[in-house]
Write a protein that binds this DNA or RNA. Structure first.
Lengths: 113, 113
DNA sequence: TCCAATGTTCGATCTGCGTCGTACTGTTCG
DNA sequence: CGAACAGTACGACGCAGATCGAACATTGGA
């Protein structure tokens, strides 16, 4: 009941997903949520990633990601918690999240030699 | 020797690929090249897909796709032939091209019921 | 009830980039 | 050599979207 509306995963098209992921800020957010693996406060993600944007801009990006079917928002008292729709995205677009995880600048690359 | 310079597939990042595929025209071009499966003249792709853009714009998009490591350009006499770097892209980003092929509006969707 | 905290919405601004037209390059052929 | 063809390079224009600040909404607690 405390979930913000989001599209069913079957109705999500790859076109919209690609547009959503094309922005560097949103890509960072998705990667951070993927790394967190659990419900996370939006502003906490901002702090963790070091992305410097206003709260209205963050709200905008979260909205885009949610409408693209990539994340889910849950109302928890005073704050909104967000999470990656991991399994659903994996089911609809197999391997997509793995591609984002690879070459993530926030994680230490394998070839640091 | 008659190949236009292109990045090695290992140096291609998912970020750049996502940005390249975020544009609807470029997405159409990639899908058309994927469907063609062989060296194709750029202007022929335009005609086949029905995309209405000027030739300088087409040249721009082809350049973006090539720099993103997705396509290859070969000089053939007076014209330039382009092709998808199918195997390399599949190796680096497994499943990516399949995602684009699915839900391709140019191909008849499976569920036309 | 009043206030603080978190996030959304709205309007305005500004930058990036998709688009076009023209000029230019390179190739083939007469 | 010169003309026609295919594409590239470059500068300019316009629009979509990223960003911000301020006002508003909602919840929790004092």
């Amino acid at each position: 009941m405390t979930e913000v509306i989001e599209p069913a995963i079957e109705t999500v098209t790859i076109d919209v997903v690609l547009s959503a992921l094309a922005d560097p800020v949103r890509l960072t957010l998705v990667r951070a949520l993927d790394a967190a693996g659990d419900w996370t406060c939006g502003s906490d993600v901002l702090r963790d990633t070091g992305v410097a944007i206003g709260k209205s801009t963050l709200s905008h990006h979260i909205k885009v990601l949610r409408q693209a079917g990539l994340i889910r928002t849950r109302v928890d008292g005073i704050r909104r918690l967000v999470t990656l729709r991991n399994d659903e995205v994996e089911q609809r677009f197999p391997g997509l999240l793995a591609m984002l995880r690879e070459q993530d600048p926030a994680r230490a690359p394998a070839s640091t030699a």
